[in-house]
Design a protein around this nucleic acid. Structure first.
Length: 426
RNA sequence: GGAGGAAUGGCAGAGCUGGUUUAAUGCACUAGUCUUGAAAACUAGCGUGCGGCAACGUACCGGGGGUUCGAAUCCCUCUUCCUCCGCCA
């Protein structure tokens, strides 16, 4: 949620920023509507507070009158309070109505994109912030996509997943499973070495948590929901890990707070079709190591760069060709102010696969989380939150299989060999 | 799943036979005095949201609802924790 105060004082700048998301004047009227509702809300509260103050002081008087035995005067005062109570319930009803209107409207406003976010409608307008530094690998016409390699070496079985659960639930086996576990350990070790505290969080979260990180209400349909217990399966470790700091006021000196967590992730994602969703390209359950940081507002963009650099380091060590995209306004998620996507080139499918998304949410997420810090003057301010995948496994495996295929089998990158215990899938 | 007990400000902990509680007190924390420095002692400050330039007002004692002129305090309900029983990797 955008901060109301910022919206009131900096409306024009926010409107300009929202235009990058394709918001025209027809949609931007919501900003003025919000301010009008907020004005009403303030007036109602002032009115209601006055009634409450009067009731409180009358009630005290009544107490005194009873003590001194003045029953009749007490009865008269009671009658006065009685009429006040009707007014109070009226204004309170209006007040809560305008509060919920305000909140509903605020939830409809996405984050204001950062000044560097390019204009654009869709993923086709994303800007290549950093192209791959060399030529892309060309394995020729013989190169197989990962789903065929998986079958050839019996390391991944999508059909078995259909039998056990349904489409989009991969079953890894043998060296495929070992590779999966190796990648998780490699990513976690790298994150620890970079100063992130490792977290093992719950995989199911309650409604408050899903709301605080912004999955609810807008992405309701993307999460699996356990109705009987009113819990949601997490779509990313971001949700439980970030919620560690819900309703927390930290010290300024605590920054940066760096957390990492490996979890399985569950996404319903009403699928697309064809090659986009084939094999591991898009699945309902996948593994991901997430990195999360909470940072002082003055330093969050340095931190964003550092997080991107961390992910780049992982890809370099895995010897995978990648490029970095700066998402345009139309492709930016509602909560993000600036997002870099890292895409890996997968030589079997001859296409780029998104393996990481690193974002700065500025105060948008912290506002719902109520994650604050006390600054030097003792004033409470919202922190900036950032997160990124480091990395999502399924597509990394897809790219590793495709790019490293040889006539003798699939080569394991050197850095992973101490984790897998083998150098070749054959 | 069954029975009983509990939930108060960063922590500990009063209040809980309803009315100067605008929540005592201690610890921790912050600033100052003293000191060569530290400790101790002393002085002051020290929860959060909303409204207000401010004074101040208002709300919050696990969540929600109710009774009452008035609720931390009484009632209902939900959640969580503790003790005991049952089941269980």
């Amino acid at each position: 949620m955008l901060e109301l105060h910022r919206l009131r004082t900096d409306k024009d700048a926010i409107a300009t920023a929202l235009a990058k998301r394709g918001w025209g004047s027809d949609r931007l009227v919501i900003l003025d509507e919000i301010i009008t509702i907020d004005d009403q809300r303030k007036a109602l509260q002032t009115e209601n507070d006055a009634y409450l103050a009067e009731r409180n002081s009358l009630s005290k008087e009544i107490g005194q009158l009873f003590k001194s035995g003045k029953q009749e005067e007490a009865a008269a005062a009671k009658a006065k309070v009685e009429t006040l109570k009707t007014k109070i319930s009226e204004t309170e009803a209006k007040l809560s109505e305008s509060q919920s209107q305000l909140e509903a409207k605020l939830l409809d406003v996405p984050n204001a994109p950062h000044s560097s976010v390019p204009n654009g409608q869709s993923d086709e307008d994303n800007e290549v912030a950093k192209p791959w530094r060399e030529d892309l690998p060309d394995l020729g016409a013989e190169a197989l996509p990962h789903w065929e390699l998986a079958t050839k070496y019996n390391i991944l079985d999508m059909k078995l997943g259909v039998k056990i659960t349904g489409a989009g639930f991969p079953v890894f086996r043998g060296k495929g499973s070992r590779l999966q576990r190796a990648l998780i350990n490699f990513f976690l070790d790298e994150a620890s070495a970079a100063g992130y505290e490792e977290i093992v969080p719950p995989l199911l979260v309650n409604e408050s948590s899903a709301r605080a990180t912004g999955q609810l209400p807008d992405k309701d349909g993307q999460m699996y929901y356990v109705e009987r217990d009113d819990l949601y399966l997490i779509p990313t470790a971001e949700v439980p890990v970030t919620n560690i700091y819900r309703d927390v006021i930290v010290k300024e000196t605590d920054f940066p707070i760096k957390l990492t967590g490996y979890t399985q992730c569950f996404r319903r994602e009403a699928g697309s079709y064809g090659a986009d969703v084939k094999g591991l390209n898009r699945v309902h359950q996948f593994d991901k190591v997430e990195i999360v940081q909470f940072q002082h507002p003055d330093k969050s963009y340095e931190t964003l760069d550092a997080m991107v650099a961390h992910v780049e380091g992982l890809l370099d060590k895995l010897e995978l060709p990648y490029r970095i995209l700066r998402l345009c306004g139309g492709d930016l998620s509602a909560t993000s102010a600036l997002t870099y996507d890292l895409e890996v080139y997968s030589a079997g499918q001859k296409r780029w696969l998104e393996v990481s998304s690193v974002s700065n949410f500025e105060t948008y997420q912290a506002n719902r989380l109520k994650l604050r810090f006390k600054d030097k003057d003792g004033k409470k301010r919202l922190a900036h939150t950032l997160n990124g995948s480091a990395l999502a496994l399924a597509r990394i495996i897809a790219a590793l299989l495709e790019n490293n295929q040889t006539a003798d089998g699939i080569k394991i990158p050197e850095v992973l060999q101490k984790y897998t215990g083998f150098a070749m899938i054959d």
